[in-house]
Amino acid sequence: MAEYPNRRDVVRTLLEDRGELMVIAGLGASAWDITAIGDTPRNLPLWGGMGGAAMMGLGLALAQPSAKVLVITGDGEMLMALGAMATIAVQRPKNLSIVVLDNEHYSETGNQETATKHGVDLAAMARGAGLSRARTLTTLEEVPALRAEIHAATGTIFAVQKIAPGNLPLVLPPRDGAILQARFREALLGPAAHHQL
């Protein structure tokens, strides 16, 4: 079997010509990945709240139906939020996409195996919840079509992208969550973001 793609190649392809795409990344490697591709106010890399990335994406997508929202997170983070699949599937906003980078390991903590290593199928679980488009990708060649689908924003997307295990060099985003939130809100809402009552 051919090796799964490098996670940063996947994220680079996903974020090509991203335009005004608003991106939330789960804590750990996914946050380093979006930062390695290019830190921008339209990135919200999480430093905590494991299991919260997809739900944060849902809150944003419901709040701003005209914004396109992409959540990029890992298999370990998504496994902590299986119930969120149900919550999201009931709401299923058109402008929300969730991409799980699945290396079948907790790469930040010593490469322990996750449940997906043992056959747990996140895409099947998402389909079971009602996200009918959920699917698993195994090659980099499939990513441009996924990227186009994200920008088309015609229905909630849930994609599991299998990636090679192993850690890449750390590329750390700003660590102050207040700055991350404020710059993201300003990019989306303009200066009025700071004057809202």
């Binding site: 608003m22 939330i24 919200l44 709240g49 299991g51 919260g52 990335a53 997809a54 739900m55 944060m56 994406g57 849902l58 809150g59 944003l60 997508a61 419901l62 709040a63 701003q64 914004a67 939020a81 119930g83 969120a84 149900a86 919550t87 009931v90 709401q91 939130q181 993201f184 809100r185 989306l188 809402l189 973001a193 809202q196």
Partner: peptide
């Protein structure tokens, strides 16, 4: 009002953090 029924309460914390990112109060 958009009502979101959660499977567990912690989802709501993350949801409302996302809503605020989008300028909405929850």
């Amino acid at each position: 009002m958009t009502v979101v029924t959660l499977t567990t309460e912690e989802e709501g914390v993350a949801l409302l953090c996302g809503a605020w990112l989008g300028g909405v109060k929850g």
